[in-house]
């Protein structure tokens, strides 16, 4: 029964990874930008939520919206001021820019808010759970997270495949020069992509902070690894693979923790490396954004 519980908890943990990875996958799929600041932006999203309730008195459930708005706006500025220029320069430049941001965010957060956790308390929801009998229980909040992850990924999928702007986004991923001949400004599509990516990462970051009960500056160094691992395990360019990758990583970490409390990180990394060795295209690998 312990192991069933372990797997269950792992699946619930994987929801956050999947959500965080969705935005990463989208940016890479459309612009070939591997956003090395993704984890730190996620943590920044958590800070936006925590700070808005602590200092501005925003009700906790609404902090999600504040965080999404802040990071969405930031995403637009980031794309327009830095990444557009970097993409025109070289393949290396966008990576340098995102890495620079990854250095700036946690240190700026530490300087402004200290290394202490900024609390984001969701009260009773944090501990409420559904008893399944036999000692099994599903926490309401983790369940909510998984549902949110599924909704986000489904939403992204529908957006990309069922809307005109989504189709144009995929076309831009294929050939940004040619969409211009169709009267489409590829730079606007890039800005939209980054905004969507950062809005989803804000959601992931806020839920992450709520789950942990708070957030500290340097956690992005771990979450960025989780997000990338999720994408690689699931297979580049596959949104459903991303969901599966998140769940696999969640279960691996949860199983590692079950064996020894200092093992979850190593277990997650090892699963990632095993996938690299035996199935480098990922579990649901496809060559194109889908």
């Amino acid at each position: 029964m312990t192991w069933v519980n372990t797997i269950l908890q792992g699946l619930l943990l994987g929801g956050i990874f999947a959500m965080a990875a969705g935005g990463l996958s989208l940016m890479f799929g459309v612009m070939r930008i591997a956003n090395l600041a993704h984890g730190d932006l996620m943590i920044l999203g958590g800070y936006a939520a925590a700070v808005s309730t602590l200092h501005l008195g925003v009700p906790v459930p609404l902090t999600v919206l504040v965080s999404m708005a802040v990071l969405g706006g930031l995403g637009y500025l980031l794309q327009r001021t830095l990444l557009d220029r970097a993409m025109a320069l070289s393949e290396l430049a966008p990576m340098m820019v995102t890495f620079g941001i990854a250095v700036m965010i946690p240190n700026a957060l530490a300087e402004v808010f200290s290394n202490d956790a900024q609390p984001l308390n969701i009260g009773a929801l944090g501990t409420a759970s559904i008893e399944l009998g036999g000692g099994l229980a599903i926490g309401w909040f983790p369940l909510l997270t998984v549902v949110a992850a599924v909704l986000v990924l489904t939403g992204l999928h529908l957006f990309l495949h069922r809307t005109q702007i989504g189709r144009i986004t995929r076309a831009t991923a294929d050939d940004p020069e040619v969409v211009r001949l169709m009267g489409v400004d590829n730079l606007k599509i890039y800005a939209l992509t980054t905004v969507i990516s950062l809005v989803t990462v804000a959601l992931a970051g806020t839920l992450y902070a709520m789950r942990q009960g708070g957030v500290t500056p340097y956690e992005g160094q771990l979450t960025v690894l989780f997000a990338f691992e999720t994408v690689v395990i699931g297979g580049l360019g596959s949104l459903w693979g991303t969901l599966a990758g998140g769940l696999v990583l969640g279960v691996a970490q949860s199983a590692g923790a079950q064996i020894s409390p200092d093992l979850p990180l190593l277990a997650g990394h090892v699963v990632f490396l095993l996938v690299l060795v035996f199935r480098p295209q990922g579990l649901f690998g496809r060559s194109v954004l889908a």
Binding site: R32, A34, L36, L225, V231, L236, L273
Partner: peptide, 14 residues
């Protein structure tokens, strides 16, 4: 590319 970068990071962590 970027995934190589993160892959090397994971290896370092391991």
């Amino acid at each position: 590319g970027g995934y190589f970068a993160v892959g090397t990071w994971v290896i370092a962590e391991v």
